[in-house]
Design a protein around this nucleic acid. Sequence first.
DNA 1: TTTTGAGTTGTTCGA
DNA 2: GTCGAACAACTCAAA
Length: 485
Amino acid sequence: MSNAATIVWFRNDLRVADNSALAAARQRGGPIVPVFIHAPHQADEWEPGGAGRWWLHHSLVALAEQLEALGSRLVLRAGEPLKELGAIAQQTRAAAVCWNRRYEPELRAGDARVEAGLREAGLEVLTFKAGVLFEPVEIATRDGRPYQVFTPFWKRCLEEPEPETPTPAPSSLPAPARWPASRPLSALKLLPRVDWAGGLRETWLPGEPGAARQLERFLEQGAAGYDNDRDRPDLTGTSRLSPHLHFGEISPRTVWHAAKDRLRGSRSRRLQAGVTSFLRELGWREFGHHLLHHFPHTTDAPLREQFAAFPWSDDEDALAAWQRGATGYPIVDAGMRELWTTGWMHNRVRMVVASFLVKDLLVDWRHGARWFWDTLVDADLANNTLGWQWTAGCGADAAPFFRIFNPVSQGERFDPQGAYVRKWVPEVAGLPDRWLHKPWEAPADVLRDAEVELGGGYPQPLVDHAEARDRALTIFESLKTAKAR
DNA sequence: TTTTGAGTTGTTCGA
DNA sequence: GTCGAACAACTCAAA
């Protein structure tokens, strides 16, 4: 055992439990220097948006508290990671730097440069798997190629050895003789200047304890019904773990094993089915990382190349109406407003609003991806890219081009009593269920009784869905013939 | 190399 | 109201 200090560089792993880098540093025996470096220009093209920065701020507060409870601290810095880590290593006489690996293209390249620089400076660098269940390079087809279809990908993952059992949080962390300088959190300027985050505060508890609580609550209350209820935005049928997973406040291994443990001693078919489909959703997260690792250009370009020629509309008014939840389709508007207020949107509704933007309004999926990126607290490059490309039909799925969501029938199917729409679109709340998802079809007297004025308090539909659908199908058709020629 | 089976989440029409 | 078929053709993954 060496007595030299070890730096643990925290990034998207803001937790002390099942943190491989932290556990390895602890094993080395010397003092530990936990560091977070705010480096907003690491990924120029995809800098975190406002909602993500809000979350990060609070997650850092929580991490600092966790570390203090273990007799340690969180050293906050801003600037070039290589420079900062080098300086901290000198001050603390550290011999090694540990971190958990990331998979986003630009971050991965940056990490490689930092690793090379630190080694050049004579430091040991140790990196670990902690953010995924299966690393992108571990999973390949028989031909050694990356998977592009989910089902065989996940089947293959399930043939792997079970993900490692999570390691518990260390019971204490030895402090260095002298702490290096740390900036105050406020200096990172992560919080919005104008406080628009009230809805976020009411909805979320960022940080490791909040993540653990959320997982526990989900496994107790949500897991058994997950198979059925996860599609219902009017219920709390989903796990709502996405932002916690994104910031690494809980590890996917912890989620995996906790979900499996929940099955122990239970013979409930529903619970079994719920846990299986929940784990499959974790699998989609894995698949997103797998694809982004192997196809790094897909953040900004379609995976299926013929889609590069898609004649997207540049209707900025339509995009703006979608963004502020004023399309005239209640389920779409409800989703967009939920997003704006809480920094999150139910997964089923994400598909509906995305399909509407891309296929009804014919707006480039990249505009949608950008908006989600800026407004989601769980904004994650891998998941966001996969989701939008899937919706647009240009992604990994061999997409049947006719898969166009009907915002009315989706609303009626998944928000049957209208609780979700009424919550987020109060302008139409007075309508009876029958007309709630299609106010423009309601008779005049029904509208009057419900105090709904179309084109006044609530907009007329931006487009006619049936016409929009035909338009989209025609364009998809032309893409095909263009390619055949 | 060639063949074969299959692909998260849909919609609409007509019986 | 419910159900099955049609919506085309392509690409992926495995045999």
